[in-house]
């Protein structure tokens, strides 16, 4: 039972942590890892792991919940996950690639977080990270409830539509995140990359299933359809467990919003990029945080 509570509260945490925490070497990362991104044959299946952990792609912390996974077929219709299991440290599932072309598999998050005061008492809106997992201990109560982390006064959390009219010092942040992989049966297609013109979007000039170690990948990022220049794309190769250093690096988008990424070798890479502005769509919110994350496979030449 205690484990169940911990899982549940951490599942919520997962939704917010990548957005709320600064990117540090120890930040828990959400990742999707396809066994391969390029498939031939008449009846291919893509197999995927999904987890949250510090090291890429080493599942030692928590699984991503299968219910969060969304599959889009090359023609834009919804696909399905099959054979899904959620284990202690990771979820695993298959996607039957019933159509030729490029498929998108990923998670989407939309949260509104913030705080306000009523009669001088601070209250919270939406999901906020609680204490770290270890702080709860066996049988520990979730954050924000009596008996939670010692020394921390419980703060009431209310739903967005329950903010009272007399709320003061209202600060609301809209947090939008996507985390995606792309797998291709046969020739790559680009229909799924057509920008919607809303939020932070991935607009690859090099197809993410056409990456080779000796050729740079060029990825454009857009915010509300306009080039997102000067953003920092963090690129981290997998396999840190077998190295001393993580080996990650940052690439800044140019005036056209394009990040030109050189690879340090063949393998799987995790990339993430974030932007913050003051153009939220949620009424009364003042800030919009957008994060895009993808795992890509770079082949040997």
């Amino acid at each position: 039972m205690a484990n169940f509570i911990m899982f549940k509260s951490l599942a919520l945490l997962v939704g917010a942590s990548a957005l709320a925490l600064p990117m540090t070497a120890s930040a828990h990362r959400q990742w999707l890892l396809p066994v391969a991104t390029t498939y031939s044959g008449e009846d291919p299946w893509a197999s995927v792991d999904a987890a949250v952990s510090n090291d890429l792609f080493f599942p030692d912390h928590f699984p991503i919940q299968l219910a969060q996974i969304k599959v889009t077929a090359p023609d834009g219709t919804a696909g399905a996950i099959e054979h899904g299991i959620t284990a202690r440290h990771r979820s695993t599932f298959d996607v039957h690639l019933t159509q030729p072309g490029t498929w998108k598999i990923g998670t989407e998050g939309f949260n509104v977080m913030g705080s306000f005061k009523v009669d001088g008492v601070e209250k919270r809106v939406g999901r906020r990270p609680g204490p770290p997992p270890g702080a709860m201990g066996p049988g520990g109560a979730p954050a924000g409830t009596p008996g939670g982390a010692p020394g921390r006064a419980p703060v009431e959390s209310v739903a967005l539509d329950a903010i009272p009219a007399n709320a003061a010092d209202l600060k609301l942040t809209e947090a939008i995140s996507r985390n995606e992989i792309f797998v291709t049966r046969g020739a790559p297609t680009t229909a799924l990359f057509k920008p919607s013109g809303k939020g932070l979007e991935f607009d690859p000039l090099t197809h993410p299933d056409d990456l080779v170690a000796n050729e740079p990948g060029k990825f454009r990022f857009l915010i509300d359809g306009q080039p997102a220049k000067g953003l920092k794309l963090t690129v981290i190769p997998g396999g840190k467990r077998y190295r001393d250093a993580e080996g990650g690096y940052d690439v800044t988008t140019d005036a056209n919003g394009v990040a030109t990424v050189k690879w340090t070798g063949a393998g799987m890479y995790w990339m993430t990029i974030s932007a913050t502005d003051n153009k939220p769509t949620t009424p009364r919110a003042t800030e919009r945080r957008m994060t895009y994350t993808a795992t890509v496979e770079v082949m040997a030449p």
Partner: peptide, 17 residues
């Protein structure tokens, strides 16, 4: 045909098409 993509150089420039 499942294994044709193991010919990764050919698959990329010609096979997948």
């Amino acid at each position: 045909t499942k294994w044709l993509s193991d010919l990764r150089g050919w698959w990329r420039v010609a096979g997948r098409n």
